[in-house]
């Protein structure tokens, strides 16, 4: 019960202080809209391309929506020492960091469904396999958030977190199979692609929207879960060794 009280209060404070602010809400809406527009212009095709574009727009919305928030909720609070209040609370570090990241996960999932709502007016969504799509989005949000956490605890300034995020985000964007199928990438780049969590998330989204996944869904889910576990564990270890000196 006490753990639940702490978890809920950290989450609701972050939601009120960061996520539910008008700039973030508008960012959460405008960003997927802008990506959708860019993809349409690029493809130069009509509404029949919406199912092809949807997985990519969803994945990008989650990736950018989650990774950018941790720089504020974690790095900023660490810099201004309010994070010390959380470290002094008699709660396990694992619970504390889950509470700090859940807001970003919820924000990322909400971001992913903005393009889905838009797509509802443009395509027949009855073809979508929701049983695959929803857990896929949630796992992409978890893995992207934990990547953001890993970045946030590796730096000491907010601007460093933003810069460092791009070091991961843009290669992932281009190598995850969103713009080019992985089979068309140079052979030496393919291992890099398979070392990125978004690759497996995008594959699941392609499968659930267009039945066009290239890997078994079990493998995709397993790899995403493994990335979540490793990134969270490494982030916790970094907090213990770098912040609790």
């Amino acid at each position: 019960m006490r753990a639940l009280t702490v978890f809920w209060n950290i989450l609701s404070k972050d939601m009120r202080s960061y996520y539910l602010k008008p700039p973030n809400i508008s960012w959460g809406l405008i960003f997927p809209l802008a990506w959708t527009g860019m993809f349409f212009i690029r493809s130069g095709v009509g509404l029949e391309s919406v199912p092809e574009l949807l997985p990519g727009v969803m994945a990008v919305s989650v990736l950018f929506g989650t990774t950018s928030m941790l720089a504020v909720t974690v790095t900023f609070e660490k810099k201004h020492r309010s994070f010390e209040r959380l470290l002094l609370a008699p709660i396990p570090l694992e619970l504390l960091m889950l509470a700090k990241t859940t807001g970003a996960i919820v924000f990322g999932v909400a971001n992913a469904f903005v393009p889905v709502i838009m797509a509802a007016f443009l395509m027949d969504l009855s073809v979508v396999s929701w049983g695959t799509l929803i857990p896929a989005v949630v796992l992409i949000a978890f893995s992207s958030t934990f990547l953001g956490l890993f970045i946030a605890v590796s730096v000491s300034e907010v601007f460093e977190a933003q810069t460092f995020s791009n070091f991961f985000r843009f290669p992932m964007l281009f190598l995850c199979g969103l713009f080019f199928p992985i089979e068309r990438l140079p052979v030496w780049l393919r291992p890099v692609s398979y070392a990125m969590p978004l690759t497996y998330g995008v594959d699941l989204l392609h499968e659930s929207v267009r039945r066009a996944g290239t890997m078994p869904a079990v493998l995709d889910f397993g790899m995403l879960a493994a990335f979540c576990a490793v990134l969270f564990a490494v982030s916790l270890r970094n907090i213990k060794t770098k912040w609790i000196l």
């Binding site: 006490r2 009280t5 702490v6 209060n9 202080s17 309010s82 209040r85 959380l86």
Partner: peptide, 18 residues
């Protein structure tokens, strides 16, 4: 927390102790 009021800050800190 600069963005919280005095009351909200105290209430939040109390919540951290369950």
């Amino acid at each position: 927390y600069p963005e919280l009021s005095g009351f909200e800050n105290l209430s939040f800190c109390g919540a951290l102790y369950g």
